[in-house]
């Protein structure tokens, strides 16, 4: 009986306490954010969506390698010698065409690991969270600004350049071979009949030419030899210039 009465008392006490609390909350300000009209202020370092400033991208693929879920896909084409891609805003020289920079936001796990390795700070997280799509493929963001024609052009130019280089190399090899053959032939000739003939003279000529330097050009083994010698000289000059530059720099630093 006493227990029943105390039970009744505690029941009503707790019910009225509860009702008091709910009544207070009935008039407290609600915490709802009326989303499309109102928006919360986002924290400073939110990770919501990746953005790439493609003008600054040097195509180093560090972000692609850092990504744990492999959602970044980068394609690059080497630029040719006559193309100048300019520099990034951070002063890096751009040497590669970035013909593909796709980020699959459906795969992205928002870890931000790709952002930190970037040497030019061109990949960043931006404050955009309203990019849901009906098709999964719409979540693949393509940042490359190259048109298919440009990509084709870049690829063709690279191919041409490589072709040209290869041809040059081949020609050089061929020339060296010929020269060696000629030398061998000359040696043979010298051995058989000393105080040489036409070939001996020719070889002498070419030696003279190579020691003199550059300009003679035409056809035949003498010419190819001359070319080679010219290139060697050029290279040496460049090396010397670089060495001088380095030394100058060192001096100025000291």
């Amino acid at each position: 009986m006493v227990k029943a009465l105390t039970d009744i008392y505690t029941t009503f006490k707790s019910i009225f306490t509860g009702m008091g609390i709910t009544f207070r909350h009935l008039f407290t300000r609600s915490v709802t954010v009326q989303y499309p009209q109102q928006r919360d202020v986002l924290p400073e370092r939110v990770r919501l969506k990746l953005h790439v400033n493609i003008d600054d991208c040097i195509g180093c693929r560090l972000c692609e390698r850092a990504c744990p879920v492999e959602c970044i896909e980068i394609g690059t084409i080497k630029s040719t010698d006559d193309d100048d891609l300019g520099e990034t805003s951070t002063g890096h020289k751009k040497r590669l065409w970035v013909d593909q920079f796709d980020i699959d936001m459906a795969k992205c796990c928002y870890c931000e690991l790709c952002v930190h390795p970037c040497p030019t700070d061109c990949i960043t997280m931006v404050e955009d969270y309203e990019y849901s799509a009906y098709d999964r493929n719409d979540l693949i963001l393509s940042f490359s600004d190259m048109t298919p024609e440009q990509i084709e052009e870049a690829g063709r130019k690279l191919e041409e350049e490589e072709e040209a280089k290869r041809r040059k190399k081949e020609e050089a090899m061929l020339a060296r071979k010929k020269k060696e053959e000629a030398k061998a032939a000359a040696g043979e000739a010298g051995g058989e009949k000393p105080a040489g003939g036409g070939t001996g003279e020719a070889s002498k000529d070419s030696d003279a030419e190579s020691s003199r330097g550059a300009d003679a050009s035409g056809s035949g083994d003498a010419d190819s030899d001359a070319e080679k010698a010219a290139r060697r000289a050029e290279r040496e000059a460049r090396r010397a210039a670089r060495k001088a530059e380095r030394e100058a720099k060192k001096k100025s630093e000291d």
Binding site: T22, H25, L26, F27, T28, R29, S30, V31, T32, Q34
Partner: peptide, 13 residues
């Protein structure tokens, strides 16, 4: 509305 406001929400708006 009562449910919403008691739970510090707004209810249908």
């Amino acid at each position: 509305k009562v449910a919403g406001h008691i739970q510090d929400r707004l209810g249908p708006m």
